[in-house]
Simulated scan of single mutants.
Amino acid sequence: MIALWQHQKIRNALLQAAFVGGLLGLILTGALTAHHTLAAQGILSGWDFLWKATGWDMTFALLPATSSDPYWWFLLMGGLNTLFLGTIGLALATLVGILVGLARISENKAARLLGTLYLEIFRNIPLIVQVFFWYALANRLPAPRQAIEVFGALLSNRGLYVPGLNIAGWAIAGSLALLAAGLGLGLWFSLARRFRRDAPYRRRRRAWGTALLAVILAALTLALGHGMGTPWITAPALRGLNIRGGYRIQPEVYTLAFSIAIYGGAYIGEIVRGGFIAVGRGQDEAAKSLGLTRWQSFTRIRLPLAIRAMLPILTNQYVWLIKATTLGITVGYADFFMVVSASITHSGQTLELIGILMLGFLVLNFSLAAGMNRINRAIALKGHQNRS
């Protein structure tokens, strides 16, 4: 026995087995203790509640959700709401960040000053304070009868009404899913290592073919969801004391998206600025020596190299902004976190629902980080930038 213990590999294996066994024992002890405690208080654990009716309504849902729907459907709608808000927030924050970052590295002093003022103001005010401010401002807007009209849209204290498609919600959701799948497959066909040996024109043809097929299927899905004899587009208009027609974007939705966009855009702007600063001056000098214009030097040399420097830090910022969507509970937006919180109050299944909440955000953030890391590995240059 002593001889086996002196063997390094055996000793390491035994120590690891003891550590894993102790950890599993600790988890099992905690689970059994929690089970006995809950049973003593009359709280039963299990997953049967997922198929029971909730008995309460959601304030916002991308698909129909009523009080007679089960908990699993509400949890799914909450997850979709979080994904919806996160997608819009990340897209807008990226756009704002690019503009702020370019302003910060501009040769124009006024642009640099505006970029710096924006950065210092919005980065140093907590996100929750900005959410409260914009939501309070949205509630102070005029009533529907005095709604502000901007390019065919109507803005009031009940929300932002925009022209929309006269198509069923399931058809719109299905078409968006098809477009997202087509985009993902197209990127995979373009960047995957198994296809790098193919000729460039074959990879482009495969990627564009996949995208075209997704567009055709999405168009067919929209056509199926359109009612015969009705207009394709409906515009909002004042009828009586309320606004009818078009899409209504609730104040909770657009204030949260706007807050995430301007707050996250300040941080992304610094990431963009740092990415461009990381590109050496020698690259510009080499471009000038080759006779490239400033635009060609920017789009073909500086921008690709800056993107490679930005992606690792940008991944962390995206994950953080996705987690920031949980602030929706402060203004009543029915995101994943709020739905779980309400479900705990109504069902009493605390441990199960907290586990679902943790698992949901783990899957969402891990998928986002994995996708960004995959893109980073695909475009990374071999050498010191590719070291792990």
Rank of each mutant, 00 (worst) to 15 (best):
R300C: 03
L311C: 08
I233Y: 04
Y267E: 03
M228G: 08
R205G: 13
R196F: 00
A211R: 08
P312I: 02
R193Q: 13
Y318E: 03
D284A: 15
E270P: 02
R202T: 13
I260F: 04
A207M: 11
G209Y: 04
W232F: 12
T315A: 15
V253E: 06
T234W: 02
G269E: 07
L238M: 11
G269M: 03
M228W: 11
L224S: 10
T299G: 07
R194S: 14
I277F: 04
P200R: 03
A324E: 12
Y247A: 09
P312E: 03
F276M: 11
L292A: 06
L292C: 05
L222G: 02
W232E: 00
P312W: 03
T255G: 00
R239N: 12
I301A: 07
P304R: 09
Y263F: 13
I249N: 00
T221Y: 04
V215N: 05
R248G: 00
Q317E: 15
I313T: 15
R196L: 10
V253H: 02
W208C: 09
R239P: 01
L303N: 04
R302H: 13
L292I: 01
R202V: 14
G291A: 10
V319T: 13
M228A: 14
L238P: 09
R194Y: 09
N316I: 01
G275I: 01
L217M: 10
Q250F: 03
G229N: 12
V279F: 10
L220I: 15
R294V: 14
Y318P: 04
F258Y: 13
R193C: 06
L220D: 07
E252D: 01
A223D: 07
L314A: 14
I322S: 01
A257I: 10
W320C: 13
L290K: 05
T230Q: 15
I216R: 04
N316G: 14
A235E: 15
T210A: 15
R273H: 10
